[in-house]
């Protein structure tokens, strides 16, 4: 198809050009990502007071609990579903904000660092600690006591503590939805929560798999 036209030239991006490799920043350099997160956060002019968000989210969780008549499992699922819908829109916004600066991910560690240092910083203005389980290939994001905006100033009644209501489960959904937007299938679970009396809040991202690109019919 191409060769029929005499003066055809093709150029592609990505790996095949050596310049791209040379210029791409050193990904293992966590400091770079940290600076990038700060920079994107500072540049982002559209910031808003978190108070309304926190209160709205609280009353939403209350409505869900009332509606499902204290069925905590359903509440957790619903919050996750909401998160997925948000995440699949948010991922486009994330890339449209950082697309030119962000280096390519090479492995799960890079993914975890990008999530905690850039994405969380940009949207929620907090940086969870990133830990990586080498054997199980699990990305762990640990929130130190008060940095999670959603659960700030929240205290759960004992009833829901025993039933394990994951108050901020929407974050797990958002991560899962966002990753599915870049063709990564994953299981994101809220592993533990300080609101439930655990020593720390942790989100686990496990079983990250690639969704194969679709091929048009007849190819």
């Amino acid at each position: 198809m191409v060769s029929s036209v005499p003066d055809t030239s093709i150029s592609t991006t990505g790996s095949s050009s050596s310049a791209a490799i040379k210029n791409s920043p050193n990904y293992s350099n966590v400091v770079f990502l940290k600076q990038l997160g700060e920079q994107v956060f500072q540049q982002n002019m559209k910031k808003i007071n978190a108070e309304f968000l926190t209160i709205t989210y609280g009353s939403l969780v209350k409505v869900l609990i009332d509606h499902y008549k204290d069925d905590v499992e359903k509440c957790n699922q619903k919050l996750k579903e909401m998160g997925k819908n948000i995440g699949s829109r948010l991922i486009d916004d994330f890339y449209s904000k950082v697309t030119t600066q962000i280096p390519r991910c090479n492995n799960l560690k890079d993914l975890g660092n990008t999530l905690s240092l850039v994405a969380f910083k940009l949207y929620l203005n907090c940086v969870p600690k990133f830990l990586f389980d080498e054997e199980e290939k699990i990305i762990k994001l640990r929130f130190d006591n008060d940095i999670n905006i959603f659960s700030k100033f929240v205290e759960l009644p004992d009833e829901y503590k025993n039933k394990r209501l994951y108050y901020s489960n929407i974050i797990a959904g958002i991560i899962e939805g966002a990753l599915s937007g870049i063709a990564l299938k994953s299981d994101v679970i809220y592993f533990s929560d300080t609101l439930l009396g655990d020593p720390f809040s942790e989100i686990h991202i496990a079983n990250v798999k690639r969704i194969k690109d679709e091929v048009p019919m007849g190819q």
């Binding site: 191409v2 036209v5 005499p6 003066d7 055809t8 030239s9 093709i10 150029s11 592609t12 991006t13 990505g14 790996s15 095949s16 390519r104 991910c105 090479n106 492995n107 799960l108 890079d110 993914l111 990564l184 990250v208 798999k209 690639r210």
Partner: peptide, 15 residues
């Protein structure tokens, strides 16, 4: 692999 390198197509020029 999990994060494959894609040689994305940028432009073709014809006559």
């Amino acid at each position: 692999s999990l994060f494959p390198q894609k040689s994305n197509f940028r432009k073709i020029t014809t006559g």
